[in-house]
Design a protein around this nucleic acid. Structure first.
Lengths: 170, 170
DNA sequence: GCCTCTGGATTGACATGTCAACCAGGAGGG
DNA sequence: CCCTCCTGGTTGACATGTCAATCCAGAGGC
C-alpha cells in the first residue's frame, strides 16, 4: 500500500514520461495481441474470443448447460452483454436457450452438437496461437513476471477503485 | 526457471496450464484496465480513449491539423476506423474536416476550439487515472519489467507473424 | 482522347460492448 | 388484495471496430 512506499512518489500526482511509456507499451501491446489472436481464431475456426469463452464454459459444465446468470458469472460478463452475444450465437446454431423447467425465471443455455463440434475444432489452433504469440515471445522469467504483474494490477483494481461507488451502503 | 518441468520445450506445441494462466491474467487484466480507464475518462471529460488519441495527435501537430492518412499512421489506426471515428467526432464539434487546398485528394483534419478545450480539460484527469490504476499498483521493478515484457511481445509480433500476408511482393 | 491502375478516403453491412429502460415472476408488508 | 421491491433476463439505442466495396482524382499506356 501507499504507506510502504519510499519518499519517491510523495507529492507527485502525474506519471513521469518513463511511466507513461510503460503504460502505453503495456496497453497497446495487449490490444495488438488481442486483435491478432482474434483474426487467427476467425480464419481458423470462425469463432470470436467471446464465442470461445462461452463454448468453453458450456463444454465444462455438468450437462453441457448452464443458467444464463451462472454462465455470466463464470466468464465475468455483464448480463446484457451475454444476452446479446447468446442471441448472435443462437442465430448461428452454436447454442440453444430454453425456459428452465426446474426453476422459475431462469433460462438454460445449452450447447448444440454444432457448437460442441466448433469448439472442439477450435481448441488446438487457439492454444497454439497463444503459445506462438505470447509464450514463445517471453523467457520463463518474463512469463512468470508477467503473471505477477497482472495479478498485482488486478488486485489493485479490485481494492482501491472497486466500483466507482463505495460499497458501504447500509 | 521452474526446475519441476524438464527442459523438453522443443517438440511441445501447446502451452502448459501455468503458461495459459499467465496469458489469461495478462489479457484479462489489460481488458479490465482499459474498461476502467474508459469509464473514468467518460465521466470526467466525456471523451473516449479514441477521442483522446485523436485529439492528442492533433494538439501536437504543427498547425493543429493533419492529413487523414498522417493521423492514421501516427496513432496506428486503420483508415476506415479513423474515418468512422472522425465522423462521430465531427458531429460532436471536436474536429473539422476540409478539402486540402495545398494537395490533391487529401482531407485535412483540424482541431476546433471546442476540441482543443475538451482535450485540455481531459489531460490531467487522464494522466492521474493512469497513475492511480497502473503506476501505483506496481513497484518500480515491476514497472520496468512490464515495459520490457510488452516490448518483447511487440517485437515478436512484428517479426515472425507480421501480417498474415508476407509483405515481400515485388 | 480513352482505358486502366493506383492511392487516399469514405461508405455500408455487420459484430461487438455499454448503458439504461423494461418485463415477468415471486416475496413481503400494509 | 394491492403495492412495492427484488432478481433474472431481455431489449433498444448507441459507440466502437472490421471488412469489403466504392468513389474520386491523377498517372501511364495505347
Amino acid at each position: 500500500m501507499t504507506s510502504a512506499t519510499p519518499a519517491r512518489r510523495k507529492g507527485r500526482q502525474l506519471p513521469t514520461a518513463e511511466e507513461l511509456r510503460a503504460w502505453r507499451e503495456y496497453i497497446e501491446t495487449a490490444e495488438a495481441l488481442r486483435s491478432r489472436l482474434t483474426s487467427r481464431l476467425q480464419v481458423e475456426s470462425s469463432l470470436s474470443p467471446g464465442d470461445y469463452s462461452v463454448l468453453l464454459a458450456l463444454s465444462e459444465a455438468p450437462e453441457r448447460q448452464l443458467r444464463s446468470s451462472a454462465l455470466a458469472a463464470h466468464i465475468g460478463w455483464e448480463r446484457s452483454r451475454l444476452s446479446h452475444h447468446l442471441g448472435r450465437m443462437e442465430r448461428r446454431g452454436l447454442i440453444r436457450r430454453q425456459e428452465c423447467a426446474t426453476e422459475r425465471g431462469g433460462a438454460e443455455v445449452l450447447l448444440t452438437p454444432a457448437g460442441a463440434e466448433a469448439f472442439r475444432r477450435s481448441t488446438v489452433p487457439h492454444l497454439r496461437a497463444i503459445r506462438e504469440l505470447f509464450v514463445d515471445a517471453l523467457t520463463p522469467d518474463q512469463l512468470r513476471a508477467a503473471g505477477e504483474i497482472a495479478a498485482a494490477l488486478r488486485a489493485h483494481l479490485d481494492t482501491r477503485h472497486a466500483g466507482q461507488a463505495p460499497p458501504d451502503v447500509p
